Lab assay of single mutants.
Amino acid sequence: VSVELPAPSSWKKLFYPNKVGSVKKTEVVFVAPTGEEISNRKQLEQYLKSHPGNPAIAEFDWTTSG
């Protein structure tokens, strides 16, 4: 189950709350306009370098507050 949070234009930000008793931590995933899922800052940096014209990296908020 995921919750969609505010994201930069043409992107989606999905929040996957951890299940009770789960060892997996809460996860935030950005979905690029191409449909590619980005789950960490390093991936995001690589994606933005190879896909010019996207929002600046500073516009991506990895917190769950939206």
Rank of each mutant, 00 (worst) to 15 (best):
E27D: 11
P55K: 03
E36K: 04
E59S: 07
T34G: 06
I38W: 00
G35A: 02
E45Q: 10
Q46G: 08
K12T: 10
K13D: 05
K49C: 09
G35I: 00
P8D: 06
Y16Q: 06
E45H: 09
V3H: 09
P6R: 07
K13W: 02
N18D: 10
K12S: 06
S22Y: 08
T34K: 01
A7N: 04
S9V: 12
Q46C: 08
V23Q: 14
K19H: 13
K12H: 09
H51G: 01
V29D: 01
L44A: 00
F60I: 02
S2N: 08
V31K: 04
P6L: 07
S39H: 14
I57F: 13
V20N: 12
G21N: 10
F60A: 01
K13L: 03
L48C: 01
G21F: 03
H51M: 03
D61Y: 04
E59Q: 07
K25W: 13
S22N: 13
A32E: 00
K19A: 14
K49N: 14
K12V: 10
H51N: 08
T34Y: 02
S50A: 11
V23P: 13
A58S: 15
T64Y: 13
G53V: 05
L48P: 00
E27G: 14
E4C: 11
Q43L: 07
G53A: 05
E45T: 08
T63E: 09
S65H: 11
V31R: 05
K42N: 11
K24G: 15
L48M: 03
L48N: 01
E59P: 01
P8V: 04
V3N: 07
G66I: 11
K24M: 14
N40D: 12
W62A: 01
S22D: 12
F60P: 00
Q46Y: 09
Y47K: 00
K42W: 13
A56M: 08
E45C: 09
N40V: 03
P33A: 02
F15K: 03
V3P: 06
V1K: 11
I57G: 05
T34W: 02
V20S: 11
E37P: 08
W62I: 02
V20M: 11
A56Q: 10
P6G: 07
S39E: 09
E4P: 07
L48K: 01
P55M: 03
G66P: 13
K49W: 08
F15W: 15
K25V: 11
V28W: 03
V20T: 12
Q43C: 06
E4D: 07
W62T: 02
I38M: 05
F15T: 07
Y16C: 08
E36D: 08
L44Y: 01
L14N: 03
F30W: 07
P52H: 05
T63M: 06
P55Y: 05
Q46L: 13
T63S: 13
V28T: 05
W62E: 01
V3T: 07
T26Q: 13
T34M: 02
H51W: 04
V31N: 02
P33F: 02
Y16H: 06
S65F: 09
V28C: 05
G66T: 12
Y16G: 03
G35V: 00
A7E: 03
S39Q: 10
V28N: 00
K25I: 10
L5T: 04
V23Y: 09
G21W: 01
S10M: 14
G53R: 05
W11N: 04
E36I: 05
A56P: 15
P33Q: 02
L44N: 00
F15V: 14
K24D: 14
A7Q: 04
L14Q: 04
A56W: 04
Y16I: 08
P52A: 06
T64M: 09
T64Q: 07
H51S: 03
T26N: 14
H51T: 02
S39Y: 15
G21V: 07
I57S: 07
V3F: 11
H51V: 02
V29C: 06
W11M: 03
D61Q: 06
W62Y: 03
V31I: 15
Q46V: 10
T64A: 14
L14G: 02
